[in-house]
Nucleic acid binder design. Sequence first.
DNA 1: AGGATTTGACCGCT
DNA 2: AGCGGTCAAATCCT
Length: 272
Amino acid sequence: MNSCQQKAMEKLLHGRGCANQLLVMDHTESDSSMEREDLAKSVLHCFSDALSILIDTNHEHQDDQSNNSSPQDSSPVLESSRKPLHKRGRKASMAESSDYHRHESSTPIYHDGFLWRKYGQKQIKESDHQRSYYKCAYTKDQNCEAKKQVQKIQHNPPLYSTTYFGYHTCQLHQAYATFPIDTSDPEDHEGSHMIRFGHPNTSFFSSSSTNSLCQHQSQNQNQNQNHIKDEYMTTPDKAEEWSPSQWMSSEVAHAVEAFEFNPFWTSHDLSS
DNA sequence: AGGATTTGACCGCT
DNA sequence: AGCGGTCAAATCCT
């Protein structure tokens, strides 16, 4: 897979993360409707970005072919992958980096499908609000260099800017795919505490007996999963009630249909 | 106790 | 020199 395909895949995976978040939100909470809309917009944004990348890549590929360039030169290399990272101090401005994307929303995006660890907060000049710095929770474990910055940019109405830098090389997204799917009797949960999350129709479970990555994730997403557990384990008949169009804008619902979007696609699915 | 967050210091870039 | 990104010790939280 070349870097642009990987970039596009990352966008799609991020979109999936947002979609997951969207799916697990308590849609009975009226005050979360704005956040749902913002997440839905993020999903659309990610799809648009992925499409743009793929279209651009296709054009570049065609250009390369017309220029008779060698096949190994046809994969554009991300600028960031060439830049050496300093151990400490300011790099070339992150916002000047080519591989970032920015979302603006009325609520800060804390839960976007990835696990983040805050590593700094700073008052930015000519801004009334502080900027928070996050890096992927698997930075050390898996050398994942994805980062994000969250900053309130407007007070009334509240507006938050979330900027993502770099790409997840961690296996978190694959952990979703490696959660065991329970094919046994749904009543038989002996020895493992099954937590169902995501789309109620997908029989998608996390188990306390899965690998450490999954455990880590399930510990750190307690808030999410607890309410999912509460909602879906106690009311299995919710499956009948689920409909994307109920709490997605029609725009998003159409996009999901158009993409035949499945929030549990794996990176393998996306790359094949 | 261990992990996450806060916060002041440090560092490189402009 | 000032600014912004990062580090790491201190502190907080569970």
